[in-house]
Simulated assay, not measured.
Amino acid sequence: MAPATNNGAPAVQLSLNNGLMLKLKPSRIFKSAVDNPAASPGRPNTGPRHITGISFDDRGDQLLTAAEDETFRLYNCKSGKHLKTLQSKKYGIDLPRFTHKSTAIIHASTKEDDGIRYHSLHDNKYLSYFKGHKGRVISLEMSPIDDGFMSGSLDKTVRLWDLRVPTCRGLLTLPAPPVIAYDASGLVFAVAVNNYSRILLYDQANYDKAPFLVITLEDPTLSLISYPPRPIYMTSLSFSSNGKYLLVGCSGDAHYILDAFGGHLIAKLEGHVGLERRSTAASLTIQPDKGCSGEEVSWTPDSKFIVGGSLDGKILIWDVQDLQVPAGPVNLKATPRQIHPIVAHDGHPGISRCVKFNPRYGMMASAGAELAFWLPDMAPESDEVARDLLKKKGP
C-alpha cells in the first residue's frame, strides 16, 4: 500500500502495522464540508448538519461525501483538495457509492420517492433511476466484480439490480428491515435481519434458494449489564478481504466479528461510545434512523485492523491480526473475546459518523460535522510516541 502524498514526492510502498496506525494524524480538515443554515428567530437550533456517507473510488484517488444539507462533494485524495460540490435538493442524497467508473455513482434518496439514482459526476446529470422500493433505502452496495448492486429497504426487502437495466432482477422478502454486504469475490452476500438477530448468507447465483448459512448473533455478556439484555441493533455488515470474517457494526457500545464460514462469534470490539442514543421517558433506546449511523466502523484493506468512530469524536483502531475461530459447534452461550482499541485518536469536534480507510493509499477519512483526511506522521518524534503507546497497551 502506498501512502498518499501532496508534495509530488514518489509514493513509498508500505504495509500497515501497529506503529503506523498509532502515528495517524489529521493532515487536512475541511471545516466547511457541510453547509449549516444561519441562525434565525424562526429556525430552531437543531445542531450542526452531518456528513452521513462517504465513498472512495476503486483506485483510491477520489472521495465522495453525502450530507444532510442535500449536497454531495468530491475530493482529491492525493492533493487533499475539494474538487466540486453538487446538489440534490429535490431528492436528497444518502449512501453514496462509486460504481467501477470514477465519474459515476449511485445513491439512495431521502425524499420525493424511495428510488435509487445513477448519477454522472462529470456531466452532473442522472443517467438512470431504479424504482421499486416502498420504503427508504437503508443499505446500498455495489458488487465488487461487475455492474450489479444490491439494496435493502425499510419495506423489508432486498433487491438485486444491474446498472444496465432499470428493473430489479431479484427480490428477497424478509421479516424486518435488512442490512446487506457482498464478500470480496462477489459470489456471496450477507443479509442482517434486525429484531431477529439473524445474519443470512446467500450464494449470489442461487439467491432465490434458502440461505446456505444462518448465523445467530447473541452476546451472553449483555445479560450481565441489564436483564432482560438490551437487544443488538445491527447497522452495517462487511466481510474481511479474505472472506473469512464478518464485521457487524452496531449502534450500541460494541461491534462484533463473526466466523463467516461456521457462524461462531469470535470477538467483541469495545472502547467506543455508541452513536445512537435517545433517552425516552421509559428507557434508553438504541435504534438509529439510517443516515445517522452505519458507516462508523470498517476494515482496513488488508483486514489487519478495524477503524471506527465514536459519539465523543474519537477515532479508534482495533488490532485484529490474531483472530482465533473457536473449535466445535457454535455455542451461543460462549463469552466472546473482548478486544479493546490500541489507540483512540483525537478526531474532530462532535460525532465521528463515517470512518473508512483508502483502498489503495495509506490514508484514512473520517467525517461528521467536518471531514478529515488522515496520514501517518513519519517524523522521528512520532516513532517515540508510538513506542510509548505500544508499551502502555502491552504485547
Rank of each mutant, 00 (worst) to 15 (best):
K23N: 08
S27Y: 03
R43C: 07
I51C: 06
F56P: 00
F56C: 01
G60T: 01
L63S: 04
F72V: 04
S79F: 05
S79T: 15
K84S: 13
Q87T: 13
K90F: 12
E112C: 07
D113I: 04
Y118T: 08
Y129W: 14
G132R: 05
L154C: 09
L160H: 14
L163S: 07
L163F: 06
P166K: 01
P178Q: 00
P178K: 01
A192C: 07
N195H: 11
L201K: 02
Q204P: 00
A210W: 00
F212A: 09
Y233N: 08
V248N: 01
S251D: 11
A260M: 10
I266K: 08
H272G: 06
R277D: 08
T280W: 10
T280P: 09
D289W: 13
D302S: 15
D302E: 15
S303I: 08
G309K: 14
G309W: 13
K314Y: 06
I317R: 02
V320W: 05
L323G: 10
P329V: 11
K333H: 10
T335R: 14
Q338F: 02
Q338C: 12
H340R: 10
G347D: 03
S352E: 00
G368W: 03
G368E: 03
W374P: 06
P376V: 07
D383F: 05
D388G: 02
K392C: 01
P395L: 09
